[in-house]
Design a protein around this nucleic acid. Structure first.
Length: 636
DNA sequence: AACCACTGTCATACC
DNA sequence: CCGGTATGACAGTGG
């Protein structure tokens, strides 16, 4: 996913360059800043080395600004800024890069033919993304999915998308309003020339009625782009002329920079990566061959590759589900959160056809979309704890423990424990466990029953318990095997009096009693260990902070010392100068000015200044006498 | 494969 | 003495 995002941004920049060719200035920087500035602020927090905020918790904050410092999007952000700087440093766009961006639209346009409804569908980006894997081999789903996808893409090209795409600075509220109001007039903030305006007018025109201006502008663009490519010009020109109508369609709805990014994602992903598994359409292959954009030749920034494919798919899905246009849903600030939510809430309402499309996507790819962490989707309620954050660490870990069955701190645990004896089946309901977060590595390992080692009996796939059962803790499985009608939670958290009463009243066998006591002891000790580690981390953190504080204090004191020494030196020189000035104005008995070498000024306690003979000549004289005496003594 | 972080568990000391 | 807590040490697991 990180790779997809990185390439996504690179594609964005490339398309910006492309737009710059035709005079359209796209302030991509503001877009990135608007999206990522909160990241910087968040990143000012504690050391990320100690942060492991559950990523899936943050995905629900669709405002898009709750991204953790450790989130890989930070790297993505810096990469974006780096690329932008590089682009700016270039001064003028590089044509190979522009060609890459152009090819994105070309391929997407060609896919429209495979959609089967050339007159009603304007964009086939999703087609290329979803269908191309099976366009040649699996034509069975194609008729079903094609119209649907095309309809989805129909939403892609309409008003809200374009409006939002052209006004990146607009806030989400504005975007929503536009979406509610339907297609809104485009307000391109950064266009300046008449050519741009005319072009944009053509862009805003629906795909049903592409204007000639668009063709002219794009032809101009093509002439600019292709002329500098000595080895591609003729081939590309031919292909582009053949696909002129498709290009027009692509232009009509791909004016949005965000849309273009999605388009590039899907298309390149299909053509460069998916082609390995499923033959691409003939048109795609032809285009790739003609432009030299083969899988091996594609630049990293262009070839979003396989990782980008599901991203675009997600965009299309979200766009189909919600009232939002797919395009705005793809590329506004919330899109990145939606990416992280692939397969979650929105997928529940996806129609069967799109679900079919989703199922045909490589599961591994979909897994990459889930999260950058290794946690499963169910782990959204909890995750790796943050040692630096005491509250989070305690809460998350305790929650895990609650669900894992060991023990917990929360009130929920207490309420459960207070229930006392409950129904056996309800206590061992796998539902609770399936919803839990499993960070217990040892518990998730193959179950060990009493007196049997884990490694002694490796379970085969058939013998392996169900997922829920397999995720039971070892103590839970032991208790289950011993037919103990209490959960580990209850055993650990019930008061000791109640625990003793249970031991007495239920007629447990000695083995059961031993197991109950062990479960209780282990559960208690597990909590104690967690607390201990938490305290240890807190202590370490506190000590580190104290070290920093003391270092800062030491530096401050050193600076003060240096400043004081400097001030003292200046004051001493000033006093010496004043003394010489005063002595020069005074006269001795002979009417001669007082020599600073023989006299000095002393300030008394009462504030009176008294002239005193300097000790220095005397001391120096005595010392010199002493040295002379020593010399004499040595000579003698 | 080595390393690291996290976690559960055990042993032990202490309250 | 018992139950619980605190903590070092060890091992397992996964990134």
């Amino acid at each position: 996913m990180q790779i997809a995002k990185k390439y996504f941004t690179e594609g964005l920049i490339q398309f910006t360059i492309l737009l710059s060719l035709i005079g359209v200035r796209v302030d991509i920087d503001s877009y990135l800043n608007g999206y990522y500035t909160p990241l910087i602020e968040i990143n000012l927090g504690p050391s990320s080395a100690y942060i492991q905020t559950p990523f899936h918790n943050l995905r629900d904050t669709l405002d898009g600004y709750s991204v953790h410092p450790k989130c890989p999007q930070l790297d993505y952000f810096f990469a974006s800024r780096r690329l932008l700087d590089d682009v700016r440093a270039l001064g003028s766009p590089r044509f190979p890069t522009q060609l890459n961006a152009w090819l994105v639209h070309q391929v997407s346009a060609t896919d429209k033919a495979s959609c089967g409804q050339p007159s009603t569908s304007n964009n086939t980006d999703t087609d290329s993304e979803v269908q191309s894997p099976e366009t040649s081999d699996d034509s069975e789903h194609l008729p079903d999915r094609g119209p649907e996808v095309c309809q989805t893409n129909l939403q892609l090209g309409q008003g809200p998308c374009g409006a939002e795409a052209c006004g990146f600075a607009q806030e989400d509220d504005d975007t929503r309003n536009e979406e509610e109001d339907g297609p809104a007039p485009l307000a391109l903030a950064h266009s300046s020339t008449l050519e741009q305006e005319s072009l944009l007018e053509g862009i805003t025109t629906r795909y049903h009625a592409p204007t000639i201006d668009i063709d002219q502008n794009w032809s101009h663009l093509l002439s600019l782009s292709v002329t500098d490519l000595d080895d591609m010009d003729s081939l590309v020109s031919d292909r582009l002329s053949d696909l002129d109508s498709d290009i027009t369609h692509a232009i009509s709805h791909n004016v949005s920079l965000r849309d273009a990014m999605v388009t590039s994602a899907g298309v390149s992903g299909v053509t460069s990566e998916r082609a390995e598994f499923r033959p691409a359409t003939q048109q795609q292959r032809t285009l790739l061959e003609s432009t030299g954009l083969s899988h091996s030749d594609a630049s990293p920034g262009m070839a979003l590759g396989l990782a980008a494919l599901p991203f675009a798919s997600v965009c299309n899905f979200t766009g189909n589900v919600s009232s939002h246009s797919a395009l705005s849903g793809c590329l506004d600030e919330a899109v990145f959160d939606q990416i992280n939510q692939l397969g979650l809430e929105s997928l529940e309402t996806i129609d069967s056809q799109l679900m079919g499309c989703l199922e045909n996507i490589d599961p591994q790819v979909l897994e990459d979309l889930d999260s950058d962490s290794g946690l499963s989707l169910e782990s959204s309620s909890g995750g790796p704890v943050s040692p630096g954050s005491s509250e989070m660490s305690s809460s998350s870990s305790s929650y895990c423990e609650d669900e894992c069955g060991a023990a917990g701190y929360s009130s929920e645990v207490e309420s459960v424990s207070s229930k006392g004896v409950t129904d056996y089946t309800t206590m061992w309901s796998p539902v609770d466990l399936s919803e839990s977060v499993w960070h217990d590595h040892s518990y998730s390992s193959p179950v060990t029953f009493p007196h049997k080692s884990i490694k002694e009996e490796p379970l085969s796939d058939d013998e392996r318990p169900k997922l829920e059962e397999r995720e039971l803790s070892r103590d839970e499985m032991r208790a289950r095997a011993m037919c103990i009608p209490f959960s580990v939670l209850q055993i650990v958290n019930m008061p000791v009096e109640e625990f003793l009463e249970v031991l007495d009243s239920h007629g447990f066998s000695p083995e059961q009693v031993t197991l109950l006591r062990d479960i209780r002891r282990r559960g208690k000790n597990k909590l104690a260990a967690q607390n201990c580690r938490k305290r240890k981390l807190d202590a370490i953190t506190g000590l580190q902070e104290e070290v920093k504080r003391l270092q800062a204090q030491r530096d401050r004191l050193l600076r003060e010392k240096q400043l004081t020494a400097k001030t003292m030196g200046a004051v001493g020189q000033q006093i010496e100068q004043l003394t010489r000035d005063v002595l020069s104005r005074l006269r001795d008995d002979l009417g001669q000015p007082l020599s600073p070498d023989r006299y000095t000024l002393q300030c008394g306690a009462n504030g009176r200044v008294v002239v005193q003979p300097a000790r220095r000549p005397t001391v120096s004289g005595s010392s010199s006498n002493k040295t002379e005496k020593r010399k004499k003594g040595k000579k003698q």
